[in-house]
Design a protein around this nucleic acid. Structure first.
Length: 459
DNA sequence: TTAGGGTTAG
């Protein structure tokens, strides 16, 4: 500690603590604080707030909360930032009731919430799929004396997009503009992503033009967003054009951009090109995170190198990173595609032991593999046992039933899929209809056809 | 303190 000298002030102490907390060196921070006190430099509310935030991020809310007690004991009154840090910690982990309790405790302590307190709560509610409650808070903020900041608008516009209310988001955006709100590049990016995701490409194009006209320069996020959706909507040429425009504009590729491009190339079967970009990513010195690893594992699986994919999983676990649900579903799909159903089942069990809950994607892969291996009854059994299904589950099974020439069962399944309101692919519908007609089930084909028309009309 | 882009199955 002596290396900091005797001129150490609280301000300098806070700078040290902030950088150590950022580097997750919490024990070291504590030692520095103790040394500081010995030298007569007392921590202040800023010091404790930095610690609360770090403990909430890297340890637990309880650990953050105990810092709150410590500061009170030291005679320093917590402020709105102390509580916001705790509420944000709870919100990050989606612990809504804990966040609300902390909010209540803040009010009880006579601390007035600020716009950030509301922002954090709104974001948490949107994340938990409670857009109505988030919206209620937003209305309260608008009507109250709390001055909303651009971030509040960004959170609501983003939340509405993520909850599927893209039109409402666009409407809010326009209304805010009428009342003098000048959208930030951040706002444009949120809206652009929301509109593209919802397939509203015309509106997205309009927003992109508006973004440029308003004097903003598209940034790496704008480019990555547009590029991703070009690939998704199979405009590969345009996607690659944007890729080179992004480069010529001088944007350095980050992990997000690399993974977007690599995943798109893998998906369209341009494996060699994907390999080249992966090599570029590895050479660029970007520290791979779990998504980058997942992208690489996906490439190995698509090349049939499941063994190498498993080795990479080992590497993730040894490097201190945590694998996620994507990692394991990619591997399960890889095993399935390699025909190793038992291996896939074993990996699914392993996934469970790691604490991952039910995973629809993994089960869907397993159903497909069972069908492809000629175990269609096993696939049906698995299907029946599922409490949650989606459009993929139905489509996968319907295709496999068609391949097994069990068109009546396929037809029934397709009808219940339509009844659930899931969208089905034209190619799936055609496979069943053609199969029914070829097998002489013309009545059933007619019935299915009218259900398909009805579904198209309703949805 | 908070908010935007990346990875999986038909």
């Amino acid at each position: 500690m002596l290396k900091y000298g005797r001129s150490l002030s609280t301000k300098l102490l806070n700078i040290c603590i902030a950088s150590m907390c950022k580097a997750q060196q919490l024990m070291k921070s504590e030692t520095v604080i103790i040394d500081g006190i010995r030298l007569g430099v007392l921590p202040d509310v800023f010091t404790y707030n930095t610690l609360i935030d770090a403990y909430c991020r890297f340890v637990s809310i309880d650990a953050g909360y105990s810092v709150l007690h410590r500061m009170k004991k030291a005679g320093i009154a917590p402020d709105v930032i102390s509580y916001n840090s705790l509420i944000a910690g709870a919100a990050r982990k989606c612990l809504l009731s804990r966040a609300l309790d902390l909010f209540e405790e803040m009010l009880q302590s006579g601390i007035r919430p600020d716009v950030w307190s509301f922002n954090i709560l709104m974001h948490c509610l949107f994340k938990l799929g409670k857009p109505d409650e988030a919206n209620r808070i937003f209305q309260d903020v608008i009507l109250s004396s709390v001055d909303p900041c651009p971030t509040a608008f960004n959170i609501v516009i983003n939340g509405l997009c993520k909850s599927g209310y893209t039109s409402n988001a666009l409407m809010l955006f326009r209304n805010l503009q009428k009342h003098g709100f000048v959208p930030q590049l951040y706002t444009y990016n949120i809206l652009l992503n929301g509109l593209c995701k919802a397939g509203k490409l015309r509106a997205a194009r309009g927003i992109l033009v508006e973004l440029r006209d308003s004097g903003h320069q598209p940034d790496a996020i704008t480019y990555t967003t547009v590029m991703k959706y070009c690939f998704r909507y199979r405009q590969f040429h345009r996607g690659l054009e944007i890729l080179s425009e992004m480069r010529s504009e001088g944007y350095t590729f980050d992990g997000f951009a690399y993974c977007t491009v690599i995943a798109a190339l893998i998906k369209i079967g341009m494996i060699k090109e994907a390999e080249e970009i992966i090599e570029q990513m590895q050479r660029s010195g970007i520290e791979p995170d779990v998504v980058a690893y997942n992208t690489l594992i996906n490439l190995y699986c698509k090349q049939g190198r499941v063994g190498d994919a498993l080795k990479l999983l080992d590497e993730i676990e040894k490097s201190g990173l945590e694998s996620d649900a994507y990692t394991h579903t990619i591997i399960i799909d890889g095993l399935c595609k390699a025909g190793d159903i038992e291996g896939a089942r074993r990996h699914l069990n392993y996934m469970n032991t790691l604490g991952f809950g039910f995973n629809l994607v993994a089960i869907n892969c397993l159903i497909d593999a069972l069908g492809k291996e000629g175990q269609i009854d096993q696939a049906l059994k698995l299907f029946e046992s599922m409490e949650v299904k989606d459009a993929f589950t139905y489509t996968i099974l319907v295709h496999n039933l068609c391949k097994a020439r069990r068109f009546l069962t396929a037809s029934k399944l397709l009808m219940s899929c339509l009844k659930c309101g899931f969208k089905t692919l034209r190619v799936t519908q055609r496979a069943v209809l053609d199969g029914l007609r070829d097998s002489g089930y013309t009545n059933e084909a007619r019935k299915l056809q009218s259900k398909i028309r009805l579904a198209r009309f309703i949805h």
